[in-house]
Protein backbone atom coordinates (compact mmCIF):
# COMPACT_ATOMS: atom_id res chain seq x y z
CA UNK A 1 0.00 0.00 0.00
CA UNK A 2 1.67 3.21 -1.11
CA UNK A 3 -0.03 5.43 1.40
CA UNK A 4 -2.39 5.09 4.28
CA UNK A 5 -4.85 7.54 5.73
CA UNK A 6 -5.26 8.86 9.25
CA UNK A 7 -8.80 8.89 10.56
CA UNK A 8 -10.08 12.09 12.04
CA UNK A 9 -13.36 13.66 13.00
CA UNK A 10 -14.37 16.86 11.22
CA UNK A 11 -14.72 19.71 13.69
CA UNK A 12 -17.91 21.72 13.98
CA UNK A 13 -18.05 25.37 13.00
CA UNK A 14 -21.33 26.67 14.31
CA UNK A 15 -22.55 29.49 12.11
CA UNK A 16 -20.39 28.72 9.08
CA UNK A 17 -23.16 26.62 7.59
CA UNK A 18 -26.11 26.24 9.87
CA UNK A 19 -26.39 28.22 13.08
CA UNK A 20 -27.66 26.42 16.13
CA UNK A 21 -28.67 28.50 19.11
CA UNK A 22 -26.69 27.29 22.08
CA UNK A 23 -29.48 27.87 24.59
CA UNK A 24 -31.51 24.67 24.76
CA UNK A 25 -34.10 25.49 27.33
CA UNK A 26 -35.17 28.22 29.76
CA UNK A 27 -36.80 27.39 33.03
CA UNK A 28 -38.80 30.10 34.83
CA UNK A 29 -39.82 29.77 38.46
CA UNK A 30 -42.20 32.05 40.34
CA UNK A 31 -44.06 32.36 43.63
CA UNK A 32 -47.69 33.38 43.82
CA UNK A 33 -47.43 34.88 47.25
CA UNK A 34 -44.07 36.59 47.69
CA UNK A 35 -43.57 40.18 46.64
CA UNK A 36 -40.23 39.51 44.96
CA UNK A 37 -42.10 37.58 42.25
CA UNK A 38 -44.43 40.46 41.40
CA UNK A 39 -42.49 41.42 38.30
CA UNK A 40 -42.00 37.80 37.32
CA UNK A 41 -45.72 37.07 37.51
CA UNK A 42 -46.43 40.04 35.31
CA UNK A 43 -43.69 38.89 32.91
CA UNK A 44 -45.15 35.39 32.70
CA UNK A 45 -48.61 36.65 31.82
CA UNK A 46 -47.74 39.52 29.49
CA UNK A 47 -44.28 38.99 28.00
CA UNK A 48 -43.47 35.28 28.01
CA UNK A 49 -45.97 34.17 25.29
CA UNK A 50 -44.45 36.64 22.89
CA UNK A 51 -40.89 35.70 23.90
CA UNK A 52 -41.66 32.00 23.38
CA UNK A 53 -43.18 32.71 19.99
CA UNK A 54 -40.12 34.64 18.90
CA UNK A 55 -37.76 31.89 20.06
CA UNK A 56 -39.28 28.57 19.04
CA UNK A 57 -35.91 26.80 19.28
CA UNK A 58 -35.92 27.16 23.07
CA UNK A 59 -37.89 24.79 25.23
CA UNK A 60 -39.61 26.90 27.87
CA UNK A 61 -40.87 25.53 31.14
CA UNK A 62 -42.61 27.44 33.93
CA UNK A 63 -43.04 26.07 37.41
CA UNK A 64 -44.09 27.49 40.77
CA UNK A 65 -41.54 27.54 43.52
CA UNK A 66 -43.30 28.78 46.63
CA UNK A 67 -41.47 30.96 49.16
CA UNK A 68 -38.47 31.37 46.87
CA UNK A 69 -37.18 34.21 44.74
CA UNK A 70 -37.99 33.91 41.04
CA UNK A 71 -35.16 32.47 38.96
CA UNK A 72 -34.50 31.96 35.26
CA UNK A 73 -32.31 28.96 34.48
CA UNK A 74 -30.86 28.36 31.05
CA UNK A 75 -29.57 24.99 29.86
CA UNK A 76 -26.98 25.00 27.10
CA UNK A 77 -25.81 22.60 24.44
CA UNK A 78 -22.39 22.25 26.05
CA UNK A 79 -24.13 20.83 29.11
CA UNK A 80 -23.68 23.82 31.36
CA UNK A 81 -26.37 25.72 33.18
CA UNK A 82 -26.72 29.43 33.79
CA UNK A 83 -29.11 30.82 36.39
CA UNK A 84 -30.17 34.41 37.05
CA UNK A 85 -32.15 35.51 40.07
CA UNK A 86 -34.75 38.08 39.01
CA UNK A 87 -36.15 39.01 42.41
CA UNK A 88 -37.83 42.42 42.61
CA UNK A 89 -37.22 43.18 38.94
CA UNK A 90 -39.57 44.88 36.53
CA UNK A 91 -40.97 42.74 33.72
CA UNK A 92 -38.84 44.68 31.22
CA UNK A 93 -35.70 43.97 33.19
CA UNK A 94 -36.65 40.31 33.26
CA UNK A 95 -37.04 40.37 29.47
CA UNK A 96 -33.48 41.67 29.27
CA UNK A 97 -32.26 38.85 31.51
CA UNK A 98 -34.10 36.27 29.41
CA UNK A 99 -32.54 37.66 26.25
CA UNK A 100 -29.14 37.59 27.94
CA UNK A 101 -29.57 33.91 28.77
CA UNK A 102 -30.85 33.19 25.27
CA UNK A 103 -27.84 34.78 23.62
CA UNK A 104 -25.27 33.26 25.95
CA UNK A 105 -23.11 30.45 24.65
CA UNK A 106 -23.10 28.60 27.93
CA UNK A 107 -19.36 28.89 28.28
CA UNK A 108 -17.80 30.33 31.41
CA UNK A 109 -17.23 34.03 31.08
CA UNK A 110 -13.64 34.73 30.12
CA UNK A 111 -11.62 37.61 28.89
CA UNK A 112 -10.89 37.48 25.16
CA UNK A 113 -7.42 38.85 24.58
CA UNK A 114 -6.60 37.52 21.10
CA UNK A 115 -8.52 39.18 18.29
CA UNK A 116 -8.71 36.05 16.09
CA UNK A 117 -9.42 32.46 16.99
CA UNK A 118 -9.04 29.98 14.16
CA UNK A 119 -9.01 26.27 13.50
CA UNK A 120 -6.67 26.74 10.55
CA UNK A 121 -2.99 26.50 11.12
CA UNK A 122 -0.96 29.65 10.73
CA UNK A 123 -0.28 30.66 7.15
CA UNK A 124 3.21 31.80 8.13
CA UNK A 125 4.03 28.45 9.63
CA UNK A 126 6.38 27.87 12.48
CA UNK A 127 9.35 30.18 12.73
CA UNK A 128 12.35 29.34 10.60
CA UNK A 129 15.62 31.19 10.28
CA UNK A 130 15.49 31.83 6.52
CA UNK A 131 12.57 34.21 6.33
CA UNK A 132 11.96 37.64 7.76
CA UNK A 133 14.57 39.99 9.15
CA UNK A 134 18.13 38.71 8.99
CA UNK A 135 20.26 39.72 11.93
CA UNK A 136 23.78 40.75 10.98
CA UNK A 137 26.47 40.61 13.61
Amino acid sequence: MPLQAIRQVAKPQNGVGAFILQCKSLHFTYCDWAGSSKGMNSFLTHYLPRFAQQNPQIEITVSPKPRKHPVIKGNYINGREKAVCVANMDPKEIVKKAVLLRDASGEKLKKVTKPVKSLNESVRGIWDPFHGHQWKI
Binding site: P2, L3, Q4, A5, I6, R7, Q8, A10, K11, P12, Q13, V16, G17, A18, L119, N120, E121
Partner: peptide, 12 residues
Protein backbone atom coordinates in the same frame (compact mmCIF):
# COMPACT_ATOMS: atom_id res chain seq x y z
CA UNK B 1 -19.50 23.21 6.72
CA UNK B 2 -17.46 21.20 9.18
CA UNK B 3 -13.75 21.83 9.37
CA UNK B 4 -11.49 19.13 7.98
CA UNK B 5 -7.92 19.89 6.84
CA UNK B 6 -7.53 17.21 4.19
CA UNK B 7 -3.74 17.46 4.02
CA UNK B 8 -3.50 16.05 7.53
CA UNK B 9 -5.14 12.77 6.48
CA UNK B 10 -2.17 11.58 4.43
CA UNK B 11 0.24 9.08 5.90
CA UNK B 12 3.03 8.33 3.42
Amino acid sequence: SRHLPLHTLFNF
